[in-house]
Design a protein around this nucleic acid. Structure first.
Length: 265
DNA sequence: ATGGCCAATATGATTGGA
C-alpha cells in the first residue's frame, strides 16, 4: 500500500503534473492540499480516468483538501472536529477496507500562522490542539491511521537548509514545535524520521529568491502514523524531481509504502 | 524570508502563501 501527500498549490493549475506523477509513482492513496477550488469545480475526471476515487473538501480561493484512492471509500468525513465556527476547508478523513481491516487516512492542511504575534498564529495553535484531541480519539481505535499533509511545521533545525532564517517564523517557533512534538508523544511516528536522520530532506522551496536553485528548502509535509501503521512501514520517498517540472507546485510529493494488502474482492 | 514568485479574484491591484 503506497500512500502519498502533496500540497499542489491549486489543483486546476496542477492537473497535468499530477496525472503525470500518478502514472510515474503509482500511489494507492493520495492526500492533496491547497486545492483552492469549490467541490463542484474540482477536476475529478482526469483522476477518475487514471483509476482513482475522489473525495473533496474545498472552498473558494483558498485552502481545500482532497483524497484520491484506488480503493472505494467506506466513509468520508469533512472538517476537523472541535470548533463549529471554523469554516476553513483544511481536513478530510476516510476509511478504506483492506485485507487486515480498516485503514484510516486523513489529508490535512495546517494553518500557516504568520505573523506569529497575530490572531492567525492563535488560530494555528488552536487548530494544532484540536488535531491533538482528534488524534488522541482516533488512536484509541488501534487502527492503522495516517495523518498526512502540509503541517506548516519545521520539526527541527535539521529540517531546514537555513534554520537561522526561520527563527521567529510561525513554522519554526518554539510553541509550534512543542505542539508538533506533543503529537509525536501521543505515539505517532513521523515516517521520514523513522527511516533516516539525514539532513537535506526538504519538501518545500519558495518560488522566490532562487530558493530551489540554492536548495534553500524546508521539510513541512509529513506522514504521521499510528503504531499499527508504523509497524508496517517499509520505506519512504520524497519526489523532489517534481520541483523541476514545468509549472511546479512549491511543494513536492512525499510517499511511503506500508505492508498492508488490499482487500480481496 | 526576500532582489528574484505564484495563484485567485468579476482581475488589472490586492490578498494569501511559507
Amino acid at each position: 500500500m503506497r500512500i502519498a501527500t502533496w500540497n499542489v498549490n491549486s489543483i486546476k493549475q496542477r492537473v497535468d503534473g499530477a496525472v503525470a506523477w500518478l502514472a510515474e509513482r503509482k500511489p494507492d492513496i493520495v492526500c492533496l492540499q491547497e486545492t483552492k477550488c469549490v467541490d463542484e469545480a474540482f477536476p475529478r475526471q482526469p483522476f477518475e480516468a487514471a483509476g482513482y476515487n475522489v473525495a473533496v473538501h474545498g472552498q473558494k480561493t483558498f485552502n481545500g483538501v482532497a483524497l484520491l484512492s484506488r480503493f472505494r471509500f467506506d466513509e468520508v468525513s469533512k472538517g476537523l472536529p472541535g470548533d463549529i465556527d471554523d469554516d476553513h476547508a483544511r481536513f478530510i478523513e476516510a476509511v478504506i477496507s483492506t485485507a487486515g481491516g480498516a485503514l484510516r487516512v486523513a489529508s490535512l492542511y495546517l494553518p500557516n500562522g504568520n505573523p506569529p504575534d497575530s490572531d492567525k498564529y492563535s488560530y494555528k495553535m488552536k487548530w494544532m490542539r484540536r488535531l491533538l484531541a482528534h488524534a488522541q480519539g482516533r488512536l484509541k481505535l488501534e487502527e492503522p491511521l495516517v495523518l498526512a499533509g502540509d503541517y506548516n511545521v519545521i520539526p527541527t533545525a535539521a529540517d531546514a537548509r537555513n534554520p537561522e532564517a526561520w527563527r521567529g517564523d510561525a513554522l519554526f517557533a518554539p510553541r509550534t514545535r512543542d505542539e508538533f512534538r506533543a503529537l509525536l508523544h501521543l505515539g505517532l511516528t513521523d515516517a521520514v524520521r523513522a527511516t533516516t536522520d539525514g539532513d537535506g530532506l526538504y519538501t518545500f522551496w519558495d518560488y522566490q529568491a532562487g530558493a530551489w536553485q540554492k536548495n534553500n528548502g524546508i521539510r513541512i509535509d509529513h506522514l504521521l502514523l499510528s503504531p499499527p501503521a508504523a509497524d508496517r512501514l517499509i520505506g519512504v520517498g520524497i519526489d523532489r524531481h517534481v520541483r523541476t517540472w514545468e509549472k511546479p507546485s512549491d511543494h513536492v510529493p512525499v510517499w511511503m509504502d506500508l505492508a498492508i494488502e488490499e482487500a480481496k474482492r
